[in-house]
Design a protein around this nucleic acid. Structure first.
Length: 646
RNA sequence: GCCGGCGUAGCUCAGUGGCAGAGCAGCUGAUUCGUAAUCAGCAGGUCGCGGGUUCAAAUCCCAUCGCCGGCUCCA
């Protein structure tokens, strides 16, 4: 290859020769590849601006707003545009940081007065102006010292602070219009690439996420490469809002909260309570099937005991205390203590292990008022909690069994989930060997099953590593449900032992684990997952009997009682309304089956079932209907739940 | 806990200093109807709670409880 030519390999494998020094932009245009609006590129694997020139042979991939990376770059640029708009309207504002995030971007500002909704509109208008003037993003590389001097002169102290922590001698700045930001890049070629954007909300946020620091004002927004994508996203938000469990909880009459009762306390109405009963009955059965013992511990335990377990030192802020006859008691925030005492109630042999103690344990935690969120974050909740005490060599098998359990249950409910392994944090106790063995047990359990997971280094509990299983709510927020945690501390603190084959005392290992997690939270995610239209096996009301007119009421009552006797959760709508009205009610209540009774059905001794999806079934006897839905329940739960579970 | 917003009938909401409103739901009556809303009438309020300003407060101010969006936290 002559010295003034270079060879470029494109993403799709095509190769082409260009003059040395050609820009990526020109190379992509000349490449004859798909004609798309490129906004940045990957050059030999690194993300770069389109203006970057090619001085040697290279592989090149153009990025458009259709790709995840491209969209991320677009949104990052949108945050710079927003910052420029804010600086233009509020010259006294100081800029902090402004990254792209999962569904958009934000930028943090230090301002005297928080932004208002009207401010957001003005900022949006200014952004639209900046976008239509198609300002180019210019990259500049300067020395760190010069950058510090530059931002100091502009009194952008947050940037100066950030620069103080960058070790590199050279840093890059990006400039568009009057706005200059410290930024690694890359960015879109000019502001015109942002075809659709919207500022969504404003909220306070601590500088660097530390509550000891000053609270800044964060503006959230989102941006896309075309208007349709933005419309689609806004539509998604609308749909998500409709399936918000707090809204459905009220509409379907499942539960409520009351400011007279207090924050974070769930009041279960009949339909919500039956849902919970179904979940709990399902769980008890599944735990017994897997060799767990059902136990129950008290709610109040002496504070002395919480001191011994370490909760008083490490968890006091989240606990409620009370006094009974001059003796201090703590309300349990976790269920482990009684389980420890059950273990200790007699001498244990290796033959007793593993010992699996399961409790649907109701706990109370003092969560800060600002974090409460419907059923997903409450102050009183019930965990499907178990503690497994086993020999160290049994740990691997126990963890695998728990993972199987979690997978089977998530499969029945139809949840997708993400798994995370959290390793040793800085502040922790236990030997290096213990941690290594436990962490490896968790990793190998997941790897043996071929389950993908992410590592969260240093995110473990102080007493041991853990696997967390996260489910997503309607708005794509992730909530921890199942968790599997190894613990070396409690067996130590409570001096738990077992007699080994060798006749000597040994220390058992403990695993804390929940499958659904908190029943409340799980229920909340479940409601959103099904948008309130529960499968028949979970539906609080499985069928409603509706008549064409009052004339069929006597037969309808008989039928209703018969179907109820067969174990179906059924209701009778005996209101004097037209059939269409009653069908609509049932539909809105998302009841799986409507059992229609008119003169024809009375004559034949039949019912005419209609599914909530609108399908009309053959007329049938109450017995065949019960058999039909029993089969449906069994099919949905892999044979575990039929009729009359509770 | 922190920043901002909000709290009016069971629900969704209108009402910004001068008589507390609408739709749906509820109740009563009429209608007796075949698969997503029959008609009419009636009733329903401590305007979250407590103070204050004012001749007068749902409306303005303070405090408090609760809710919403974030931040922080989440053993």
């Amino acid at each position: 290859m002559s010295s003034d030519k270079i060879q470029v390999t494109f993403e799709d494998g095509r190769r082409q020769v260009f003059p040395r020094g050609i820009s990526l932009d020109e190379a992509l245009k000349a490449s004859g590849g798909p004609d798309r609006a490129w906004i940045a590129a990957r050059l030999d694997g690194n993300l770069v601006d389109l203006k970057r020139t090619l001085d040697a042979d290279a592989t090149v991939e153009g990025l458009s707003a259709d790709s995840d990376k491209g969209l991320e770059i677009l949104r990052h640029s949108a945050s710079h545009i927003m910052a420029e708009a804010v600086k233009a309207l509020f010259p006294e504002a100081r800029v902090a940081i402004g990254p792209a995030i999962e569904h958009g971007f934000y930028y943090d500002f230090e301002v005297e007065k928080p932004f208002t909704e009207e401010d957001l509109e003005r900022i949006e208008a200014k952004m639209a102006e900046i976008i239509s003037s198609r300002l180019t993003f210019q990259r500049k590389e300067i020395s760190r010292e010069d950058a510090i001097a530059f931002f100091q002169k502009r009194r952008e102290m947050y940037k100066v602070e950030l620069l103080g922590e960058i070790p590199d001698a050279m840093v890059s700045l990006y400039e568009q219009g009057d706005f200059v930001d410290l930024c690694r890049g890359p960015h879109i070629p000019d502001t015109g690439s942002v075809k659709a954007f919207k500022l969504t909300s404003v909220a306070g946020a601590y500088w660097r996420g530390d509550e000891r620091n000053r609270m800044l004002q964060r503006i959230y927004g989102t941006a896309f490469g075309d208007k349709e994508a933005l419309e689609k996203y806004l539509h998604f938000l609308e749909e998500a809002h409709k399936r918000d469990h707090r809204r459905l909880g009220r509409e379907l009459d499942l539960f409520s909260f009351s400011d007279e009762v207090g924050a974070g306390m769930v009041i279960y109405h009949p339909k919500g309570a039956i849902l919970r009963h179904i979940l709990e009955a399902f769980e008890k059965r599944e735990h017994l099937r897997r060799g767990y013992h059902l136990v129950m511990g008290p709610t109040l335990l002496k504070t002395e005991l919480w001191k011994r377990s370490g909760h008083f030192d490490h968890y006091r802020e989240n606990m409620y205390f009370t006094e009974i006859e001059e003796q201090s008691y703590g309300i349990k925030p976790m269920n482990c203590l009684a389980h420890m005492l059950i273990y200790k109630s007699k001498i244990r042999s290796y033959r007793d292990l593993p010992l699996r103690l399961f409790e649907l344990g109701t706990v109370h935690r003092h969560e800060k008022s600002g974090v409460l969120h419907g059923l997903l974050r409450v102050r009183q909740f019930t965990q499907d909690d178990a503690h497994i005490l086993c020999m160290p060599e049994q740990l691997h098998k126990e963890i695998q069994d728990i993972i199987d359990f979690v997978i089977e249950v998530m499969g029945i409910f139809g949840f997708a989930y993400d798994m995370e392994i959290s390793t040793r944090p800085e502040k922790s106790i236990g030997t290096e060997l213990d941690w290594e063995r436990a962490t490896n047990a968790l990793i190998s359990a997941l790897e043996d099953k071929g389950i993908p997971y992410t590592m969260c280094e240093g995110e473990g509990a102080f007493y041991g590593p853990k696997i967390d299983v996260k489910l997503r709510d309607a708005l794509d927020r992730r909530w921890q449900c199942a968790t599997i945690q190894c613990d070396f501390t409690l067996p130590e603190r409570f001096d738990l032992t077992y007699i080994g084959v060798d006749g000597q005392r040994h220390r058992p290992v403990m695993v804390h684990r929940v499958i659904l997690g908190a029943i409340e939270r799980f229920l909340g995610v479940l409601i959103e997952h099904f948008a309130g239209a529960f499968p028949t096996w979970l539906a609080p009301v499985q069928a409603v009997v509706v008549t064409v007119s009052d004339a069929q009421l006597p037969f309808a009552r008989q039928t209703f009682e018969k179907v109820r006797d067969l174990g179906v959760r059924v209701e009778l709508d005996d209101r004097n309304e037209k059939l269409g009205y009653k069908i609509r009610e049932a539909q809105v209540q998302k009841i799986p089956y409507m059992l229609v009774i008119g003169d024809r059905e009375v004559a034949g001794g039949h019912i005419s079932p209609r599914r909530r999806d609108g399908t009309q079934l053959e007329t049938m006897t109450p017995e065949s209907f019960a058999a039909l839905i029993e089969k449906e329940c069994l099919d949905a739960t892999k044979g575990k739940v039929g009729l009359g579970i509770i």
